[in-house]
Design a protein around this nucleic acid. Structure first.
Length: 657
RNA sequence: GCCGGUUUAGCUCAGCUGGUAGAGCAACUGAUUUGUAAUCAGUAGGUCGGGGGUUCGAAUCCCUCAACCGGCACCA
């Protein structure tokens, strides 16, 4: 007999080999009907799976969170069946569950197009209607390979070869169709239900390797019920509304055009936003950093020394004199990074150990020839501005420098309202420079720092490891923040580099009179200012806090009787340091309120006859129908206070003293 | 870079199987003096992404280049 423990802690004895379904039936008919799987010691298994040993058991019903993954997984199988029924000769490959849904990769000479989706979806509904049971079989490796080879399913044969020796080759059948799969599955296709939708077709490389052939991928989403599906589709619509490319156009912040793929045309309001961000960062650097500026183009020799020419040449812009008869035909590179420039500044003049740590910061404009398919609004561009810095320090100073940077990054994110941060350590990649010993050492130091970061945060900051993801010259910390709608963005980075100073022959004179190479720490907080602004635009859906809003206040009138007073309000708002605009157009107040609201101006100060007489303003905030009337002086004081950047707030300055 | 899609007025989009373009908003002009998300009327605006081809005739069909969109790969 085996002993099974139920969620209520009760234990019961059963015959070995009893199935979850039989147990559920023994409890109640209705439970058996709702059940889609069992969880044995927390591991999901088929309802029909014979249970052979003691375990904690749970009957998983369809509305359980864990069942959602099964719904999606089963939907992927059904999609594959539908596709093969509709398009004979299509080969199946893999079809995993992903966040919010599933996909399946197919091989077909003619890739799928969006027009195919409704047909496939209709066929899926038909298959679900058939409600064929999912049944599991265990085949021998040879039998499975022979079967799939006969079917012309070459990708499946490759997958079978990849299954570890000791593992069973499992086959799941649904009606006449079967697939290689490790399971588990729900009892039948009908359990998938109606709440799914095929979303898009896309190309994807076999096994994620761009050397392999491209497959045709179909993405779908699936949910427990129609309400959840609807909610998800609604969320997608909302996310689309806060797309920074759309808001950038609507708010007149920036544009792109064909002649400059991947480079930004910042309009006045966008540039104001950009400058607000730069000013903020600059203030945060004042105490510890020296801001510098290194040249935009440098002889390619320098990039050969740094190693960039070798690793990233394909992604660099090359520059030379354009004149046909020019004598100087040297080749320059438009800088893709700031580090070689900063090393030159460090090298200029002999440095002493007393100069360390030396922290050189630059809002460096860099250009990288990104693959055409990678570009995406402000998020991925070919020309961008890094809030970059390089810290030259001794090994003894390294850990503290990393912690100092950590503090700067976390407090900066907090000022922008990002509190959920993940810090991950990326370790040595396969393609790298430097000895294994120096990597061992760098990783050791950084592992300790990572522990300090976690400990110091009282568990608020999550940490982790990204094996093999480091830069070619050193390991790095990557800082990921989570935005208002739950998306994660990797922004900040701290990279420890034991290689570049030596490559460039950048040394300092130590206290013993010896030449030594400093450790170089590359760090960025926003990463790309352009991308960070894109993130901020989407995070706030264009509705910026007052200190960031490019246009903070519009002063407008009800009738022209109040024009003179409005001019006074406008002047005083400007004098109070607010970025204000005056709108005296002869339009209805409804029209003007609507227009400025669509432009996402945070504050509209309405001046009518009444306000002019009482010397007040009527404040209308973006996103609210409410209005507040305040005496002009008081209103400007309130707004002026609110427009102070977070790092300059009085309370914070007092706390710092 | 790879797969698929898209490209028509400043913006959002119509334009069936080929017969040389249309709407709404915006702009401009005029009227309207208005109390918190669209006042009314009129006017103007397009070598239909670029190039090439098929055809008596191309926004429409074919080729090619480019940009953009969705993925994949990449991201020092």
């Amino acid at each position: 007999m085996i002993s099974l423990t139920f969620p209520d802690e009760s234990q019961r004895e059963f015959q070995p080999g009893i199935s979850g379904r039989e147990i559920a039936e023994g409890i109640s008919k209705s439970l058996a009907k709702k059940a889609v799987a069992v969880a044995l010691d927390g591991r999901l298994a088929d309802l029909s799976e014979p249970i052979t040993g003691d375990a904690k058991i749970e009957i998983v019903t369809r509305d359980d969170d864990r069942a959602l993954e099964m719904i999606r997984h089963d939907a992927a199988h059904v999609m594959a069946e539908a596709v093969q029924e509709l398009y004979p000769g299509t080969q199946v490959t893999i079809g995993p569950v992903i966040e919010n849904g599933f996909y399946y990769d197919f091989h077909r000479n003619e890739p799928f197009t969006p027009e195919d989706l409704p047909k496939i979806e209709a066929k899926m509904r038909e298959i679900i209607q058939r409600d064929a049971p999912f049944t599991k079989e265990v085949w021998s490796r040879d039998q499975a390979k022979a079967y799939f080879r006969d079917q012309g399913e070459n990708f499946k044969v490759e997958l079978i070869d990849a299954i570890p020796d000791g593992e069973d080759v499992k086959i799941y059948r649904q009606g006449d169709w079967l697939d290689l799969c490790r399971g588990p599955h729900m009892p039948s296709t009908g359990k998938i239900g109606p709440a799914f939708k095929l979303m898009k077709v896309a190309g994807a490389y076999w096994r994620g390797d761009s050397n392999n052939q491209m497959l045709s991928r179909i993405y779908g989403t699936a949910w427990t019920n129609e309400k959840d599906l609807k909610a998800y589709l609604h969320l997608l619509e909302e996310a689309e509304k806060r797309d920074h490319r759309r808001l950038g156009r609507e708010m007149d912040l920036f544009h792109f055009q064909e002649e400059g793929p991947g480079v930004v045309f910042w309009h006045a309001k966008g540039w104001q936003l950009f400058q607000s961000l730069v000013s903020y960062m600059r203030r945060r650097l004042e105490d510890d950093y020296d801001e510098v500026n290194a040249p935009q183009i440098l002889n390619k020799e320098l990039w050969e020394i740094s190693g960039h020419w070798e690793w990233y040449r394909e992604n660099m812009f090359q520059v030379e004199s354009a004149g046909d008869d020019a004598e100087d035909k040297r080749i320059f590179a438009l800088k893709p990074m700031n580090c070689p420039g900063h090393v030159q500044i460090f090298k200029h003049g002999l440095k002493s150990y007393r100069d360390l740590p030396l922290r050189l910061a630059e809002f460096g404009v860099v250009h990288r020839y990104e693959p055409s398919g990678a570009m995406h609004g402000l998020m991925r561009v070919r020309g961008f501005t890094q809030d970059d810095a390089h810290v030259f320090c001794t090994e003894n100073q390294l850990a503290d420098e990393c912690m100092k940077i950590n503090d700067l990054i976390l407090t900066t994110y907090a000022d922008f309202g990002f509190d959920e941060i993940v810090v991950k350590l990326s370790t040595r990649p396969e393609k790298r420079v430097g000895s294994d010993e120096s990597w061992d050492h760098a990783e050791e130091v950084m592992t300790e720092v990572l522990e300090r970061i976690a400990a110091q945060s009282d568990g608020r900051i999550k940490t982790g490891i990204n094996p093999g993801e480091g830069a070619f010259y050193g390991p790095k910390f990557e800082y990921t923040l989570r935005d208002a709608i739950g998306r994660e963005w990797q922004c900040g980075t701290t990279q420890v580099d034991f290689n570049l100073p030596e490559r460039f022959g950048a040394f300092y004179i130590d206290s013993d009179g010896e030449k030594k190479y400093p450790v170089m720490v590359h760090r960025a907080i926003c990463g790309s200012m352009e991308r960070f602004l894109g993130i901020l635009i989407e995070n706030h859906a264009g509705h910026f806090p007052l200190w960031l809003a490019p246009k903070q206040v519009v002063v407008t009138t009800i009738t022209s009787d109040a024009d003179d007073y409005a001019r006074e309000v406008y002047q005083r708002a400007r004098a109070a340091g607010l970025r204000a605009e005056l709108d005296l157009r002869n339009e209805k107040i409804n029209y003007k309120v609507r227009e400025h609201s669509l432009a996402k101006v945070p504050v509209i100060l309405v001046c009518g006859k009444r306000e002019a007489e009482e010397h007040t303003v009527n404040i209308r905030r973006l996103g609210s129908k409410d209005q507040t009337a305040l005496p002009l002086a008081e209103a400007l004081e309130v707004l002026g206070e609110e427009a102070v950047p977070p790092d300059q707030r009085v309370d914070r300055k007092l706390a710092a003293e």
